[in-house]
Design a protein around this nucleic acid. Sequence first.
DNA 1: CACGTGACGTCTA
DNA 2: TTAGACGCCACGT
Length: 99
Amino acid sequence: MQEFQQNIYTILAYLEVGKLTTYGQLAKRAGFPHHSRHVGKVLSKLPKDTRLPWYRVVNSQGKISLSGESFLRQKIHLEKEGIEITDEGKIVNFKQYLD
DNA sequence: CACGTGACGTCTA
DNA sequence: TTAGACGCCACGT
């Protein structure tokens, strides 16, 4: 389990700027398919001042899975990198940014 | 041990 | 396109 978490961090750290990835993809790349839910769990524990681009992670529908404050923080971060997002939290041209 | 709970995913109607 | 039903799995109660 410790390894799973470490892998997630690493993969995220090496994710190219301007690109996005999904929970499922991360879990799979970390070598643990079927653990998509745990990816979210790990990310939720990240300190808010972390350097990792947690905001480049969305669900398979290309939609932000957060709500309230968190939702806004992620939306802002992404827009800052030139990515368009609807008020519903859906990413415009999602596939285009997919890693 | 049973059950509810997630920053989820895939299939179907 | 959308909504529901399942599937999945570590964890706290």
